[in-house]
């Protein structure tokens, strides 16, 4: 916890130095508690009992984690810019959204949509999860869709790339292939462009079970995944394993 508080204070200080609006919010299925952070020294962790709900994340009382979070975050970013800030920097604790498997799956998709939006908007988000509360498995599931993570909760990362595609970094083997399959299913469902592109340039390793997981995720969604940046070996494996829901080579 000490590490997290230190990281969070650095994160807040950096935002304040850049004259960003810095907010802390705690997300839960019941609603969002939310407040401005004006001093890095104020950052503590655990429950923040006196968190003022100054601006609701959404006005929709039926908000669910599966809803496109950009609908709520977009106006908040715009408001920060209108108020003269250089952007919006959010510090969240989403532990409560990751308890239940169904809610967690929906939230993973939302996390990816946020990741995609943040690529080209004045938004920075640090999502935190309490590993002791959730356990390693659920944390790996939500962590794998973040472009940068502290520690190594997931051996791979599935993140948004330019042009609406997905990028896969890190390593995938038998132990993490099921998690990759779940993450792809949740995230690829959110993707608009076809063919769906998965960039493997930053992938350090994948075994046959990781490739089969990609194939099965695509097949389960009734679509195809277009792999770019695959090594010659990975290209050969996809070919000999006859993984016909995976395409190879440059996107035409």
């Amino acid at each position: 916890m000490g590490d997290l508080v230190r990281a969070a204070r650095d994160y807040v200080s950096e935002g304040l130095d850049r004259h960003e609006r810095v907010v802390f919010c705690r997300l839960s299925p019941d609603g969002i508690r939310y407040g401005d952070v004006s001093d890095a020294a104020d950052v503590r962790w655990g429950p923040m009992p006196d968190l003022p709900v100054t601006v609701p994340l959404t006005t929709d009382p039926d908000w669910r984690p599966s809803q496109d979070p950009v609908e709520s975050l977009g106006p908040m970013v715009d408001a920060a810019l209108d108020d003269g800030y250089t952007g919006l920097r959010v510090l969240t604790d989403a532990t409560d959204l990751a308890h239940d498997p169904v809610s967690r799956a929906a939230w993973v998709r939302s996390e990816h949509l946020i990741d995609r939006y943040a690529r080209d908007h004045a938004l920075t988000i640090l999502c935190s999860y309490d590993v002791e509360d959730l356990g390693d498995g659920p944390v790996a599931e939500v962590a794998c869709v973040h472009a940068l993570t502290g520690g190594t909760p997931s051996p791979f990362l599935l993140h948004a790339t330019g042009g609406g595609g997905l990028g896969l970094a890190g390593e995938v083997d038998r132990a993490s292939a099921p998690a990759l399959g779940r993450a792809l299913t949740q995230v690829a469902a959110a993707q608009v462009p076809t063919p769906r592109v998965l960039d493997l340039t930053e992938l350090g390793f994948v075994d046959h079970s990781g490739l089969v997981a990609m194939h099965r995720a695509a097949a389960a969604l009734g679509t195809r995944l277009h792999l770019v940046g695959a090594s010659p070996l990975v290209t050969r494996l996809v070919d000999v394993l006859a993984l016909d829901a995976l395409d190879l080579g440059e996107v035409s």
Partner: peptide
């Protein structure tokens, strides 16, 4: 062994 196989793909590769 192809994608449908239950096991044996790793050793075949």
């Amino acid at each position: 062994q192809t994608a449908q196989a239950v096991s044996g793909r790793g050793l075949w590769l």
